[in-house]
């Protein structure tokens, strides 16, 4: 089935919204982030704050200080980049029970160009103490993740996307915070991926098999805390590691895996993602290809890396 992770969010909010502590805030993008669904069902617990992301994040903090469980949403680029001081100085410092759920991350809004595309957010959110960072692979995992974190104390950052993509799971998986999921066993190279790149990694593994390369594919939805046990096991088994993400090669999943393995078990690592550049206008698939994350290129880069 083809579906978008943001749609899972809208639907999950309506399910968990039965709990009266849940409140939802948006900054004039509720139709895009899908929080509008919640607003329709529970209008008294939905707050459109207007185009005021900094204000919105601190309002969520205030609501949580008074016992609510706020979900706060916008596009990744606006919420994180305009609300960062508030995410840091209020939510993270106060270890508050606020769920930051962004949509349109990475190249999601391809045609809108660099102003709307975000690659720095994973790194920015990962360095904030107390925050846990989650990048679901598909619609089903997004739904499970939202339902899970809602009632888990403390701040979370969940990164969602706009494009409808082929689901990786067939139904809602059991989502555990800090747990990676080995989707395909292999022995020549361990591919760690997150978000919409998980599906691409799986398809790349099939192509690699045709070339005689046996790739292991691990979905790592929780960038922080990292599932070190699973990552170590796959790295040891394969001896070579590739990370694939729709985020900067600096500080995201690739950064986290490299930081960990460099001391735990140094192996050659190839980080695939956005190479420290701004994006450009084009549709999602085209712009991914432009950035080197096209499916054929992933296969090419990995096979060269394994053979070398």
């Amino acid at each position: 089935m083809e579906a978008a992770t943001r749609d899972a969010y809208g639907e999950a909010l309506v399910e968990i919204g039965e709990d009266e502590r849940i409140v939802v805030l948006d900054a004039d993008l509720s139709s895009s982030t899908r929080t509008k669904k919640f607003a329709g069902k529970f209008p008294e617990r939905f707050f459109n704050i207007g185009i005021s992301e900094a204000d919105m994040v601190d309002i969520a903090a205030g609501l949580s200080l008074a016992g609510k469980i706020p979900f706060v949403s916008s596009f990744a680029v606006f919420l994180v980049d305009k609300g960062y001081d508030q995410l840091r100085n209020t939510i993270a410092r106060g270890n508050m029970d606020v769920k930051v759920v962004v949509s349109h991350a990475g190249f999601s809004v391809g045609e809108d160009g660099a102003s709307h595309q975000t690659f720095e957010d994973v790194a920015l959110m990962r360095v904030l103490p107390n925050f846990r960072v989650i990048v679901p692979a598909d619609y089903f995992e997004a739904k499970a993740a939202i339902k899970k974190i809602a009632f888990e104390k403390g701040p979370f950052y969940v990164r969602l996307s706009r494009p409808k993509t082929q689901t990786v799971y067939e139904s809602e998986p059991k989502f555990e915070i800090g747990r990676a999921d080995v989707l395909r066993e292999g022995k020549d190279v361990a591919i760690f991926a997150c978000g919409l790149m998980v599906g691409r990694a799986l398809r790349a593994a099939e192509k690699l098999e045709e070339k005689g390369i046996d790739a292991e594919v691990v979905n790592v939805p929780t960038i922080k805390p990292l599932d070190e046990k699973t990552i170590l096991k796959s790295a040891k088994k394969c001896g070579k590691v590739v990370t694939v993400e729709e985020a900067s090669v600096i500080g995201g999943l690739g950064g986290a895996v490299s930081e960990f393995l460099s001391s735990a078990y140094p192996v050659p690592i190839k980080r695939m993602g956005i190479n420290d550049i701004f994006g450009t206008s084009a549709n999602w698939k085209e712009v991914l290809k432009w950035a080197g994350l096209g499916e054929e290129n992933i296969v090419k880069i990995i096979s060269t890396f394994v053979i070398s």
Partner: peptide, 13 residues
Amino acid sequence: GHGLSIGNGIALA
């Protein structure tokens, strides 16, 4: 710069 927004949240609650 933060306090008034935080106050908004507590007042809304």
